[in-house]
Design a protein around this nucleic acid. Structure first.
Lengths: 204, 204
DNA sequence: CCACAACTTGCGTGTCACGCACCTAGTGCG
DNA sequence: CGCACTAGGTGCGTGACACGCAAGTTGTGG
């Protein structure tokens, strides 16, 4: 929690990391899904105010740089679930945590659309979502009192949640969709928890 | 179904595709998860009996070549579900179809472990699994009579199934696990369908 | 104030993806 | 039965990239 100001170096490092990934995403959006190959490493580095060599001290591929925000966000999924009140039933805790995590701030439609509609970026985004599953599974196991080493429920549920978020994103991106992302997210996650196992389903 | 002998050309093409991907996987296994960078394109092409230039007429990256089998298998998921009897309840049909698809032939532990434990390959395998979701979602929609354009259930369920398969694979690979893959698969998929809507659960 | 560590940068190297042009082999028609 | 056609394989050249290495620069702690 106290990684706000541990060091001036660490802050500079985080700042350049964000500068690079932000520049990468911006340039990618400018070129559109079909012009990703035109986004040169040199351009990203220049736009971020660093040398090309420094760029790949932070990222080893364009896709990794462009999707860094998604990746960072995903790693917070487990923490988001843990921060829900202990007594809350699993389904409600998950839905609340995910909505809190993915609508703060409201996601950028252009950026998401860019990532979801470009094969190479989609692969990297997939990796990002998958990285969330480990911590998420641990948080679920902690909440349900199951052993993640033997019981498959936590890991499978975490994977299902990550999948639901992906599906929600894809559906939300479809042209002419007036729903808020939170609404779509809630609809998708409700499919994962049709009826909470040992709880009374008051949701839906 | 009738793509067995449509053409001599097509058969040759499929044969070289399989030769390349098979050679790529074999060489990757030989080098182990930490030596993937030592598997040169030239080696793969030579082992497959084609020129390096031909290799990337078929695949544009090593990971794609190595995971081609997984990708091909994934694309058959929708078809596997559709080939189940129409009256069978969704959960039983899915479990039967997936087990049929992923245990025929019995998967190669070394190959799976190679793919799941190498970050770059894992990303490609993730893409392969995700490619299965579209057809799977359509098959689920057809079986449940829902509209995949409006209802999120088919897509979310397909994603959950793909995630369960991944989790099952990871768990099955853990050292000292005596279970058959079919058993692990069934356990994982049962987490996705905790209680079949109006059916009696005879599995588990 | 100084020695040390972290970080950035320029350079060189090996690898790779891919466009282009040419060649080989399978195909269908007269 | 042979010939034009076409899909696919191959060699070559080019542009870009990842990464190791060795400085130079900036923050840190004694």
């Amino acid at each position: 929690m106290n990684d706000d100001a541990p060091d001036l170096r660490a802050r500079n490092r985080q700042a350049t990391r964000e500068a690079i990934s932000h520049a990468a995403l911006r340039l990618a959006i400018e070129q559109g899904p079909h012009g990703l190959a035109l986004v040169r490493v040199h351009d990203i580095a220049t736009a971020a105010g660093v040398s090309p060599r420094t760029y790949n001290n932070y990222f080893s591929s364009r896709a990794e740089a462009i999707c860094a925000f998604q990746a960072d966000q995903s790693t917070r999924a487990g923490q988001a679930l843990r921060s829900r009140p202990a007594g809350e039933p699993l389904d409600q805790a998950v839905i609340a945590a995910v909505i809190e995590l993915y609508t703060n701030p409201e996601p950028d439609r252009a950026g998401l659309r860019m990532i979801m509609s470009t094969p190479e970026l989609e692969g990297e985004a997939l990796k990002a979502f998958t990285m969330a599953e480990g911590p998420l599974a641990e948080a679920i196991a902690a909440r349900t009192g199951t052993d993640p080493g033997r019981d498959l429920f936590p890991a499978v549920t975490a994977a299902a949640i990550a999948g639901a978020i992906r599906v929600a994103g894809r559906h939300w991106l479809e042209p002419g969709n007036p729903e808020s992302f939170a609404t779509t997210l809630r609809r998708a996650l409700t499919c994962v928890f049709p009826a909470a196992p040992p709880q009374d389903p008051q949701d839906r």
